[in-house]
Structure formats: structure tokens, C-alpha cells
């Protein structure tokens, strides 16, 4: 097994520390013995075959797993050295600090601006001016401002899927998260939109820690600094390898990487 130290040694401070995390659904184990140290303000990649529990792991990091009563989590996740499962942790505040972006954009049937402010508005009071400023800043951060600036009141569902995904990104960024979890954010997108999101990831990393789940080894090569590989062992997701992206991927073809990671079934 991989020990946490090989994964944690980096010049940056560790912001999220996963220790001995295990998740089960009733009698069935989904994830076991996950130890990760996620460095601050870097792009941390997670790859692995379908069903290895990448999404489940990601949802543990901001306790979205709580929504599903059938899932049982043991082990610990520390954010800034404090357990996120401690009884005094306010889970809503935690989720605002650790934002998440899903594979499919989920747009609320309201205007573009309202979508951007959907979370922010419920966390703190915003007057008109502050709201407009915040919406503009978030949309600029998500590289969507120029495309939507003169139709902020238009229904957001009319946007293209790629734009919708950037809108979701803006919505998450409007909360000023310390960590942003991304669950295959580009798998529903075409090449151009994927490119736009990848550039955004690289641009955001110096401000905000990014944990990126991806199927795409090339994408991992392009944007991640460190990489954790999950694999399936007897149907249970385990950490197979973890280390700097260059160490794991450089000088190898995708096929070789997939081979090393999980008997050929790792990534498409």
C-alpha cells in the first residue's frame, strides 16, 4: 500500500488531509484505506477506472456523502488541521469553503445573474451594488463575462452546455472557496469548452486548491501537479499510487500508465 508520506511531501502546505478513509454502502465496501495529503494552491488530480469511487471520495471531502443515508464513512478528513467530521463543524459553512463542480452542469431555472449568486446570496446579505459586483467578478473569473454581460437577466438554461459549466464554476467561485472539487468537469464538453475549463483550472490554482477527478490521462498531464490513482481491488476502491504528476506520467505512454495503474482498465 501507499503511505501518506510519499504522497504528502511537497513544498506547499497540506490543506486537506485524508486519513484512513473508508466508505461503505451497507455491507458493501466502496473505498478503503485512502490516505492523501492535498497541497494548498495546487491542482491535485484523481484518476482511476470507472466505479473505483472517485466521485464518492470527492463527496467525502465536503461531506456531500451525508446526503445519502445509505453511505457510511469512517476514517477522517482534516481541513486546515481540523477534522471536518467533528461535531462542532457547521456542514453548510464547510461546503461553502470546499466548493464542488459536477460532471453535468446543474443550472437553476432562473436568470444568469441569479444563478451566479445562488449560493452567495444565501450566505451573506448583498445589496444591489455588491451583488452586481460579485456577479461580475465571478463571471470574469470563470471567463464567461464577455459572453453574457449584456444578458445577465436572460434565463440561464438557454446557455450552451460549455457555458453552463463555466456558469457553475462562477457560481462556486462567488463563494470564495478555499478548495474547489471538480468531478470530471469536462466530460460532457466539446474540445473548445474543455480547453477553456483547463485554462481556467491552471489560472485558478494559485488562488484556490483544486481537486480534479478526471478520466483523461492527457488532461491529468496538462493540468495536475500531483496525482492520486485509485484502483479496484476485489471490487473495493483503493489508493494504488500517489505522487507528483511528472513522476507518475512522464516518459510513459497512456497505455503504459493505464497498465501500471490497474491492469489495463484504468482510464479510457
Amino acid at each position: 500500500m501507499v503511505d501518506a508520506t510519499t504522497c504528502g511531501t511537497t513544498d506547499a502546505r497540506t490543506i486537506l488531509h485524508v486519513r484512513g478513509l473508508a466508505v461503505s454502502a451497507g455491507p458493501r465496501a466502496l473505498l478503503r484505506d485512502i490516505d492523501l495529503a492535498i497541497p494548498e494552491r495546487r491542482v491535485f488530480g484523481i484518476i482511476g477506472p470507472s466505479g473505483a469511487g472517485k466521485s464518492t471520495l470527492l463527496r467525502c471531502l465536503n461531506r456531500l456523502v451525508d446526503l445519502d443515508e445509505s453511505l457510511h464513512v469512517s476514517g477522517d478528513v482534516e481541513l486546515d488541521g481540523r477534522s471536518i467530521f467533528a461535531p462542532d463543524v457547521d456542514v453548510d459553512t464547510l461546503r461553502a469553503r470546499v466548493g464542488i463542480l459536477f460532471q453535468q452542469p446543474a443550472i437553476f431555472p432562473v436568470s444568469i445573474e441569479k444563478n451566479v449568486l445562488f449560493g452567495a446570496r444565501h450566505l451573506r446579505r448583498l445589496d444591489r451594488r455588491a451583488a452586481a459586483d460579485l456577479a461580475e467578478r465571478a463571471l470574469r473569473d470563470a471567463a464567461l463575462w464577455d459572453e453574457v454581460k449584456d444578458r445577465l437577466d436572460a434565463p440561464a438554461v438557454k446557455l450552451s452546455v460549455g457555458q453552463q459549466q463555466r456558469l457553475c464554476l462562477a457560481r462556486a467561485l462567488a463563494l470564495d472557496p478555499e478548495v474547489l472539487l471538480m468531478d470530471e468537469p469536462t466530460s460532457a464538453l466539446d474540445v473548445q469548452s474543455t480547453d477553456a475549463i483547463e485554462r481556467l483550472i491552471v489560472r485558478l490554482a494559485p488562488r484556490c486548491t483544486i481537486v480534479l477527478v478526471t478520466h483523461d490521462i492527457d488532461q491529468a498531464r496538462r493540468v495536475t501537479d500531483r496525482l492520486a490513482c485509485l484502483g479496484l481491488r476485489d471490487g473495493v476502491g483503493r489508493l494504488v499510487q500517489c505522487g507528483p504528476c511528472c513522476e507518475l506520467l512522464d516518459g510513459r505512454t497512456n497505455a503504459e500508465v493505464a497498465e501500471r495503474l490497474g491492469g489495463g482498465s484504468c482510464c479510457d
Binding site: N62, L64, L67, D92, T93, L94, R95, A96, R97, G99, I100, F102, Q104, A106, F108, F118, G119, H122, L123, C168, R171, A172, L175
Partner: peptide, 13 residues
């Protein structure tokens, strides 16, 4: 769709 509730919860609501 569950994604709406999940998304809203993910925004700290």
C-alpha cells in the same frame, strides 16, 4: 432531479 438538491447543498445551503 437529485442534481439540484446536491448542487444547492454543495453551495453551502
Amino acid at each position: 432531479p437529485a442534481k439540484y438538491v446536491e448542487t444547492a447543498a454543495g453551495l453551502g445551503m
